[in-house]
Write a protein that binds this DNA or RNA. Structure first.
Length: 508
RNA sequence: GGGCGCGUAGCUCAACGGCAGAGCAGUGGCCUUUUAAGCCAUUGGUUGGAGGUUCGAAUCCUCCCGCGCUCACCA
């Protein structure tokens, strides 16, 4: 990335302008600015004073990035944009003097940040504008913004020929955000989602906690971890793949309701639903079981939807989705039957189930356990069809080493997953709190881990010790915030809801 | 990892075996209520990279790099 030494013609021209300003004694990057209103406030205040038929003109000092310039001889129109909207500047030789007008005309460019003051007024065309009496550069832009031009249509800014190449948009997210207002909006929604979730959790008497990202033993999910190393301690560490085992230790410690919103890291495939690091909400609720957590999940998402979307309905990739109705609760085996025609109870072992799946031409990974096969079938055949909010419940034990079995069937665990828009958004279960049962689950996993299934996690002795002190019965829950954001912002790719998504390293 | 597709000016895109172009941006000029302002003129390219085929390659072939979609893998 040697661009700084390889300027384009446009950049060289702007550097010359910058040098000229400096030569004239004008600092193009001053440390302080003045501002009386945001653009949106100024427009609102002006419209209010207009209604009151106030004789006193409204004065304003505004700041923003120049988004368009229209020069017409001795007057110049320009739009500036701040974080709250855009507003038109009107610069006229009569008000400024020809010299100042020429200064703007010759040395100010689209992309520059400027400060301008004067009186608010309405142009002949009816647009609320600032009649500029004074202006100054507050940050000169060297590189042209990757967008052509703005158009104002009925008060809405239409941006033409704007940055569209997804690779450039992700690699230079700053440029993407600078020119694509709809991208900024996605991240406002994302922030509103986490805010609403925190508000809800806090209102339900949960305490927000932070647990280690760097962990000596990883666990809580089926995934391969990233590995790192502490130099002084000469100790290998893992980036967490879930928060689960630490959060449940806190229940042992006496907290009844804990949650954490933070980053998980999984060293696995990257695609439109998976980024190597992603944001999870996990919570653990003492004295609740998975049925209670299902109810809670509905309440939580209903609240979040109302807060963020202002209602319960939204459209995802052409499908209308309503959070306001009770989520159907379907037993996993029923869902599999409905979408594949396979009766799980007719295939009690991996070999017979694999044969049944092969008969249907489903992909069957070699050496997979029965639980893994069911999980695969779920992902490929069932999940994409679950558009409306739906819970599937009662999962196979082999793929749920931290969940409590059904009293009536040790091979099935009290676990559910929530689906929406064709993908999984949350996963929850009645947490296993029997240290002896947990030990045997770990041992089972360790055997499989040695046998080569790298996604299983190793024994966590300390977690078992914690559990031996006594862990209250509890329901636990995890939800991908990125995926919820995809749903609420109608984005098909997880990269659109992550500010700086991971991309392959590029030699520059 | 497999398949398909894409990569051309700062941005958005044409040209698809025969002189590498347009709009916007930029630069110079005209223009005192414009709003993708308009008008005149004009700068800007190792066509992602390296090889090959050909009289001639942005275009066809091979490899490499990157991205997208998809399958596989994967919560």
């Amino acid at each position: 990335m040697d661009e700084t030494h390889d300027y384009t013609d446009i950049e060289r021209g702007r550097l010359e302008k910058l040098q000229h300003l400096r030569a004239e004694g004008i600092e193009p990057f001053p440390p302080r600015v003045e501002r009386s209103h945001t653009n949106a406030e100024a427009i609102k205040a002006f419209e209010k004073s207009e209604k009151k038929k106030s004789k006193k003109p409204l004065r304003a000092t505004l700041v923003g990035r120049v988004r368009s310039i229209r020069t017409m001889g001795k007057i110049i129109f320009a739009h500036i944009e701040d974080g709250h909207g855009s507003l038109q500047l009107f610069l006229r030789a009569n008000d400024l003097g020809e010299e100042k007008l020429e200064l703007f005309r010759n040395y100010y460019d689209i992309g520059d940040f400027v400060q301008a003051s004067g009186e608010m007024f309405r142009t002949r065309a009816g647009e609320v504008s600032l009649r500029v009496e004074e202006f100054r550069m507050i940050a000169k832009a060297i590189t042209p913004l990757p967008a052509a031009k703005d158009e104002e249509v009925a008060g809405e800014v239409v941006r033409h020929a704007t940055l569209a190449d997804p690779e450039l948009r992700y690699r230079q997210r700053y440029a993407d955000l600078a020119v694509n207002p709809q991208v900024r909006e996605i991240f406002r929604v994302r922030a509103a989602i986490t805010r609403a979730l925190r508000e809800f959790m806090d209102s339900q008497d949960f305490i927000e906690v932070e647990t280690p990202v760097l962990q000596p033993v990883y666990g809580g999910a089926a995934a391969r971890p990233f590995t790192t190393h502490h130099n002084q301690l000469k100790q290998d560490l893992y980036l967490r793949i879930s928060f689960e085992l630490y959060l449940k230790r806190l229940l042992v410690g006496g907290f009844e309701r804990v949650y954490e919103i933070g980053r998980d890291f999984r060293n696995e495939g990257v695609d439109r639903k998976h980024n190597p690091e992603f944001t999870m909400l996990e919570f653990y609720m003492a004295y609740a079981d998975y049925q209670r957590v299902m109810e809670f999940t509905e309440e939580m998402l209903l609240f979040t939807g109302k807060q963020v979307l202002g209602g319960t309905k939204f459209t995802y990739q052409g499908n209308k989705i309503d959070l306001g109705v009770d989520w159907p609760r379907i037993e996993l085996s029923e869902a599999v039957l409905e979408f594949t025609g396979i009766h799980l109870k007719d295939y009690p072992d991996a070999a017979s189930l694999a044969a049944a799946m092969m008969a249907k031409k489903y992909n069957v990974p070699a050496g997979a356990s029965r639980g893994k096969l069911i999980d695969d079938m779920l992902g490929a055949q069932v999940e994409p069809r679950l558009i409306q909010p739906t819970f599937l419940y009662n999962y196979p034990r082999e793929v749920s080493p931290l969940a409590k079995s059904l009293p009536s069937n040790p091979q099935i665990v009290e676990r559910f997953e929530g689906y929406m828009g064709g993908f999984e958004i949350c996963n929850a279960f009645t947490e296993l709190n029997d240290p002896l049962d947990q030990l045997s689950r770990f041992e089972e996993m360790s055997r499989n881990l040695k046998a080569g299934d790298e996604e299983l996690h190793p024994m966590d002795e300390d977690y078992l010790r914690a559990m031996r002190y006594g862990m209250p019965p509890n329901g636990g829950f995890g939800m991908g915030i990125d995926r919820l954001t995809m749903l609420f912002t109608d984005q098909a790719n997880i990269r659109e809801v992550i500010l700086f998504p991971h991309l392959r390293k590029r030699e520059e």
